[in-house]
């Protein structure tokens, strides 16, 4: 599907998960999203986001009930309600919200190339400069990671054999400072050089830019929009079917 259609859908689902809707309906939305991930990306891609949010989900499920003590009490210890009907409902709502929003963005990000996503955002009015910042930053991330690894290696080699004990806890931050200094200086030094590269390719000109690569126009966009509209409309209409 065209990223220009997926993007509003992801936003729509995010909003839906924040609305005070019946739990069954939220569950149905989550089911639909899961199905989309399963069919579109495979079962393993369904497990991946779940694994990253698992600790948070656990926190939500354990810690929400004690703060919502209304309704029928299920578990009380010494006059303190730990588990009640309201608590269970609230925990389920928050868990559905967290999982649902994560899935909505996950399906968008996993099925769209970053460059296409930026093109889609530009179609919705993101300025050229902002898109350029994001895409250049994305390009720099792997290189910087390599740089940091190498600086750490260099540091390790130089410290070797001097009997310095390995750092622990907050000492780690302290022992990282010289390495962070190197990485920051190397990065800051690249700023004017990157600026040179950008100006040599015409960043700063006032004329209208053109674009060689465009997201597909015409029939595919229309079909994509129709599909997105159907899904979105279905999700919204469902609200009125569940009174």
């Amino acid at each position: 599907m065209d990223p220009r259609c997926k993007l509003p859908l992801a936003v729509l689902f995010t909003v839906l998960f924040f609305l005070p809707l019946p739990l069954v309906l939220l569950g149905a939305y989550l089911g639909a999203l899961s199905l989309a991930i399963w069919l579109g990306l495979g079962f393993r891609e369904l497990v991946r986001p779940l694994r990253t949010i698992a600790p948070l989900l656990l926190l939500v499920l354990l810690l929400t009930p004690p703060f919502q003590r209304g309704g029928q009490a299920y578990l009380r210890i010494g006059g303190l309600t730990l588990l009640s009907a309201d608590g269970v409902r609230e925990a389920a709502r928050l868990a559905l919200r967290l999982t649902g929003v994560t899935f909505a963005f996950f399906v968008l990000l996993r099925s769209t190339a970053p460059a296409d996503l930026i093109l889609a955002l530009r179609a919705f009015g993101l300025p050229f400069g902002a898109g350029l910042v994001v895409s250049v930053a994305l390009q720099y991330v792997p290189g910087l990671k390599g740089l940091f690894d190498q600086v750490q290696d260099a540091h390790r080699l130089r410290r070797a054999g001097n009997g310095a004990p390995p750092a622990r806890g907050l000492q780690v931050v302290r022992s990282l400072l010289p390495q962070l200094t190197s990485v920051l200086i190397l990065s800051i030094r690249r700023i004017p050089i990157l600026a040179m590269a950008l100006e040599m390719r015409g960043v700063g000109r006032t004329n209208r830019r053109s674009s060689m690569r465009r997201l597909p126009q015409g029939r595919r966009l229309v079909l994509s929009s129709l599909a997105a509209a159907a899904v979105g409309l279905g999700a919204v209409v469902a609200i009125f079917l569940f009174p």
Partner: peptide
């Protein structure tokens, strides 16, 4: 990139 800056047609 540079040609896009110049505004050439795609």
């Amino acid at each position: 990139f540079a040609l896009e800056s110049l505004g050439w047609p795609a």
